[in-house]
Simulated scan of single mutants.
Amino acid sequence: MTRLIVAAGGGGDAVAAAMLDAALYGDDGRAVIFTYAWDRLLIDPLPGPRGGADFTGLEALTPTVWSVPASARPIAPAGSMVPRLAAELPHTFALIDPHHGAQGITRQLEGLVNHLKPKSIDLLDVGGDILARGDEPTLRSPLADALTLAACCQVNAPIRLLVAGPGLDGELPAESLHPALGSLVHTFTAKDTEPIGSVLEWHPSEATAMLAATARGARGICEVRDAGLPVPLTDEGPTVHHVDMDEALSRNQLARATMTTTKLDEAEALSREICGFSEIDYERNKAAWLGEQPPAKLDPKAVLAQLDHFEAQARNRGATHTTFRRITEALNLNGTQRHDLRQLLISKHPEQYAPPLWRITTAPE
């Protein structure tokens, strides 16, 4: 008997799943975390999610589900953080492959449930965009969450939907989620972040970074993503709430529409129809644009001067914190330089490092 946690959007949700498992269950066995390999363009230059055919070294868990061990590798030029998660965390990471739509994920999940016979199944979403209607102007990445919700609603097993850090994904404001949030399951503390502390040093997820930061006491306004969206860091940030699955499905039009899909292309077309866009199209366009840009050089002197300018503007916008992803993109550097940029900034201004965020200091007098 084990526990199964479905990371609704992959990436940062998988990291948060590991934190949740440790917080709720401690050392009582280890969870299987069912997650996408969808690391966006910061890590993976190819648009969209990766499937089993994009890796070497996977291990069969069931006839339709592969686990991703630490020794697995994405096939170039693809990239993936999942093998590194497997190397640093004690959990088993099983791969959600959405290329056969919600029906394919449903079959994968049913196979996992039959094989594992888990004592609990949680569907975890950081931020709450799994509750999106589809027409919200701030919505950016509804497809993965919609597909996992659609699949979980079709599996003949009790599944608990949990939303951690309402509003922290910057897609839906926390107040818009309040009517759907049920009982408080847990409030993360600084101690709860310890099991994923090393992962937070390198993983690019902004939502999970802010979830951990609020658990550690950070409060204020954090700028995220390339557009510099302001996300409030409040006492609500480290909370985890139960949400009724039927309520979530009734809100999420894209999830309802994709329930019978058998191809990712079908689901993507429905996203264009319902939400007005496809996040994979956005990745395709951005990947093409990035491919046309000359390789940038990380010149420490120039970077620190640019940082001063960026911070002055961010202060004027009311920001108190930002993410290293945001700084990387604001300084027109590429994702491969994020680690070097982070090391440079921490070495020069260690007092501004508020793990795993960057603190924007008040204006000098």
Rank of each mutant, 00 (worst) to 15 (best):
A314M: 14
R317E: 12
E279I: 05
D169Q: 09
G101Q: 02
W202Y: 13
S347E: 13
E279M: 11
L143R: 07
L200I: 00
A157L: 08
T336D: 13
P49F: 08
A269W: 01
F324M: 10
A248C: 03
L249R: 10
Q343P: 04
G167R: 09
T362Q: 15
A151L: 09
M210C: 06
H100E: 15
F34M: 06
A174D: 05
F277E: 12
C275F: 08
E247I: 11
G111K: 10
T2H: 10
A8S: 15
N285M: 13
R40F: 04
A14M: 03
L177M: 04
A227W: 10
G182W: 07
T2G: 03
D13G: 07
S141K: 13
K286Q: 14
A23M: 02
T214S: 06
A150K: 04
A212F: 01
G220Y: 01
G101W: 04
D97H: 12
D39A: 00
P355D: 08
E329M: 13
G101M: 02
T35L: 08
T362G: 14
G167E: 06
L85G: 01
R359W: 01
E223K: 11
A218T: 01
A257T: 07
E206Y: 10
P118Q: 11
T260N: 13
L270V: 09
P74K: 03
P356T: 03
D129G: 09
V6N: 04
V68C: 08
F93T: 09
S141D: 07
P173Y: 10
A267P: 01
A72W: 05
L109Q: 10
P74H: 03
D235C: 01
N332Y: 09
T258L: 02
I360Y: 10
A190S: 15
N332C: 12
G9E: 06
A102S: 14
V82K: 01
I130Q: 00
P158R: 06
W358I: 00
N316P: 00
T64S: 15
